[in-house]
Design a protein around this nucleic acid. Sequence first.
DNA 1: CAGAAACGGGG
DNA 2: GTGTACGTTTCTG
Length: 606
Amino acid sequence: METKTLVLLDIDYVTEDNKPVIRLFGTFMAEEGPKSIIVLDRGFQPYIYVIPRDLERCQEELEGFEVVQVQSVPRKDLGRPVNVLKVFFNHPQDVPRFRDDIANLDSVHEIREYDLPFYRRYLIDKGLFPMGKVEVKGHSIPASEYQGGHAENTHIMELDGEPVLLESDFPELKILSFDIETYNPKGMPRPEEDPIIMISLSSNEGLRKVISTAKCDFDFVETVASEEDILKEFMSTVKEENPNIIMGYNSDNFDFNYINERAKRLGIAVDLGTDGSSLKFMRRGFTNAALVKGRVHIDLYLVVRRYMSMDRYTLERVYWELFGEDKEDIPGDEICDYWDNGGLQLDSLFKYSLDDAEAVTKIGEKMLPLTMELTRIVGQPFFDVARMATGQLVEWYLIRKAYEIGELVPNKPSATEHSNRRGKRAAGGYVKDPEKGLHENIVYFDFRSLYPSIIISKNVSLDTLVEECEEGNCHVSPEAGHLFLKKPQGFVPSVIGNVLRERVRLKTMMHQATDEREIQLLNVQQEALKRLANSMYGVYGFSRFRWYSLECADAITAWGRDYIKKTMKKAEKFGFKPIYADTDGFYAVYEGIDDSPLEPDNEMSG
DNA sequence: CAGAAACGGGG
DNA sequence: GTGTACGTTTCTG
């Protein structure tokens, strides 16, 4: 028996003997330095919830299915206590096999939580948070006995008992960025014809390296004999450096895909992970995400696009936006000329390639803390969080919170339900057409943070929405007059309330802190909570969401319109003439009033 | 004008 | 893989 404390980087499951095996990927401090670890847990079973019409008959009818176990458990459905059946299966893939037939049984009213990916269910049920510290007890397995010995530098252990989440600071992780260049004289690179001519690497621990078949005097250039050797040297460098995070720019769809295609042609495996497996691709809609097992592959392009608002997202533009410096750029269609011409041009191509990899490291160091913090709050893998829309973040946060209080998660809308929802949209925010002209002394009133406040103060939630209500017991929304019970506090209002309170707590700590690093850390944490709170009002309005409610969405925007109009009136009394308003804020010009002591501010927030 | 198709980033 | 993006711009009939 041994105990290890690891930073949980990622999680997946594999199948052994028809049984699922959860794998926790992490890094821990060994005597010789940081080391990768894989922890196996064979003790977790997939399950769904069945809401019966007739509990006893339902239990009987379920015996006709390959279910392992059925438990009757108390849960809540929109706050109302219900007894439901927790139905266990042998394998996660049994769930899609049997769920429709189970849902169609006469004795079954509804099934729930039948589409939560197995590894996500595990994280929620075990109370584990990726990018957090986890203590595990178990026994180690010789690396030579795992995956045919291909995971030789990784510590493998099998879990005995439960993993325990420990309080922890932000983990310090090793980050490696890479970038490839190709020889493509005829338009965009095609992997069936155009070879990889260099791969650049950069790390947050100072690695600077370009692997190429061309010779060069720069000390950062390593010359190898063939394209195959470029790929092999790339793989061995990654394994040697053993980064926890591997980053690229548009690497989900370009770099990794290209490396994979070229390697296939050359007949070699792309082995970059910690478990001896080759590069995998996950379908995410119409596009792919590249997976390196045991490390977290982050495509920085996706992260940047989520958190920065720009009209274009080229690496050069993003770099300029963040650091205010130009980055040398070689146009894509000229790279082959620089390569062919050699000499000084080849030198600058090497520099440009390394520059790109280093820019990715620099941008990543700036952008990743926020995503990492969101990971630690939402509790889903860093890999997933870095690719999630904010709406999904909120949804997975709510799913975890629902589990914590024993509330059943609403189902995802079916295709027909979804198109129905899309048909009728809640009225949007208030819009006042802008007044023509060039205005000075402009004041902006920001209302975005008001939406979460409306949800809390008016208790806007699916579980508090009622058809009728005694005088004084309900909040009544403007216009449509939707009714929300004042008590008890609804699920979503309580979650948002906690987020906002936690943010206030962090901000207070931030203002009291003196250590510069601690202040920065607290700032990232409170920013992450602000982001989460501000995207939470959307849960009711987005047609794909489990917590969608036209009534709630309509009530929030109605109260919002009410507030913005009242505030504009009030602002006018103080000499601010509104010139333009849209949904979550309005612009006003300070015109002044006689004998007013007020001076215009450049910004005021709601 | 509405609905379909393309586009983004990458070389 | 307990799965199938997304929001916006441009094209086409």
